[in-house]
Design a protein around this nucleic acid. Structure first.
Lengths: 246, 246
DNA sequence: CGGCTGATTGATCCCGGTCAAATGAGGTGG
DNA sequence: CCACCTCATTTGACCGGGATCAATCAGCCG
């Protein structure tokens, strides 16, 4: 139920890229064509690529959730970012010799892979396409910086609230928020790994957010009951997402 | 004393870019020429650009240290990265509409600013130049991800050790390590903000590293007494820096 | 029904934060 | 040369947020 129908899935990609930087008509057509060329599926809980691998293709996610993560030798794990429908993973990644993090699916996903030549052809067709993908890279970097302050300087309640606000904004751009609710297929273990908390404390923090009347979370569906209050407790400022929606 | 002589400062830039991805002869010449075009100086403790500003130029640092940081309304601050000689800040940044973080100098610095047109001309002269700057962007993103796991999943001792290992490797590439020592012009307050610790605890952690015989730090000079032991306690793996030195 | 995964709760502990003060190293003006 | 100020480092005492350990519970599947 998290995977939308196969037709029109490229809409998420266009919505996301257009929110970052407007793409021309011809550019949009080229993206659609490229995306349709090689569409793949993966089940939940699969590693699409692992730290240490040689980089291969650029991946564009059409539906479902994934995450980027890094692990320490002793098993500690940090999710460094979520990958949502419409997100592009690592444009130009083929320029480096090894991958520095892993990407795992959290749900069944539909995505497309573009080989280097295909991707380079795509961005050379139209300067607005090249710029949009560049903005995607810049925005991903910006999110990563925000996560640094989230992990380094916010306390547990602020941290969890912040991640929820971010996901809400990012999902809204690609049309996956209805009212103030969205599918939230993330395990508490995953959310703990994303916020740098233990699962026990994450659970208690979620309960605190619920008790404060800020969110509802059950059956993998999250509802924000009071967005502004949630954003205030998180000190959330959406600028860093670079989604210039009017 | 932290600012090297004005002649040949572009060496750091070339050394760094070449470590990321080899640049052609003509590309190197173009970079040198562009860097010489507009060289600026700034004192220690200045903000070169602030969160919320409109992006202006691409900056390439020739000497001195700076940092990128983000701050919360209540004054909490997180340094999200250090900027070292040879580093380029935000290639293509002019594509987004507002800057999401600030850059402050930690020492007097010499850097150059390239306007959009100049930068675009530079990367269009030679594909190896464009690719090298792309790799710089990718490497910066990779470092940011490593910092996420550092802040989220390593304890104080591991964290501080890790940052030191990273700085050692990055400085070595640009020739700023002599033996196992390098200039370390970072205040304990700054280092605390980089590691997400309080200054008090950072101080105690440094003492622990000293007591373990891993480092020496005085008069703004840091010596690594036992690199492998330090890397082991940090669980440091340099792959994420993407410095493919032989 | 048994087994599995994920959510929840309780009890205890400790890493690292906070508060407060002392020490030291320039830097400056009289 | 000294008094004084500022900024960085260091130390001591105490506290609390969040980790850890250990069950229990709930839903789902074969």
């Amino acid at each position: 139920m998290l995977v939308a129908g196969d037709i029109g899935q490229e809409q998420a990609v266009l919505r996301r890229l257009n929110a970052l930087r407007r793409v021309s008509e011809t550019g949009a057509a080229a993206i659609k064509a490229a995306v349709r060329e090689r569409t793949l599926k993966a089940a939940a809980g699969e590693d699409l690529i692992c730290e240490g691998d040689r980089p291969d293709n650029v991946r564009i996610f059409l539906s479902g959730w994934a995450c980027r993560y890094k692990a320490l030798e002793d098993g500690r794990r940090q999710i460094v970012n979520f990958v949502l429908p419409g997100d592009t993973c690592d444009a130009h990644i083929y320029l480096v010799s090894t991958i520095d993090h892993s990407i795992a699916t959290l749900t069944p996903v539909v995505y497309c892979e573009l080989e280097r030549a295909t991707f380079e052809k795509l961005i050379s067709t139209d300067v607005t396409v090249a710029e949009a993908f560049y903005c995607e890279t810049l925005a991903t970097g910006s999110i990563q910086r925000e996560w640094a302050i989230n992990l380094g300087r916010r306390d547990a309640l602020e941290r969890v609230a912040h991640v929820i606000c971010e996901l809400y904004e990012r999902l809204k751009v690609v049309g996956l928020v209805e009212g103030n609710s969205f599918a939230f297929p993330v395990t508490q273990t995953d959310l703990a790994d994303a916020t740098g908390l233990s699962t026990v404390h994450l659970n208690r923090t979620l309960q605190e957010l619920r008790a404060a009347g800020l969110i509802t979370l059950r059956d993998r569906s999250l509802t924000i009951l009071a967005f502004q209050a949630l954003a205030d407790t998180a000190m959330f400022n959406p600028n860093y997402l670079h989604l210039d929606r009017k």
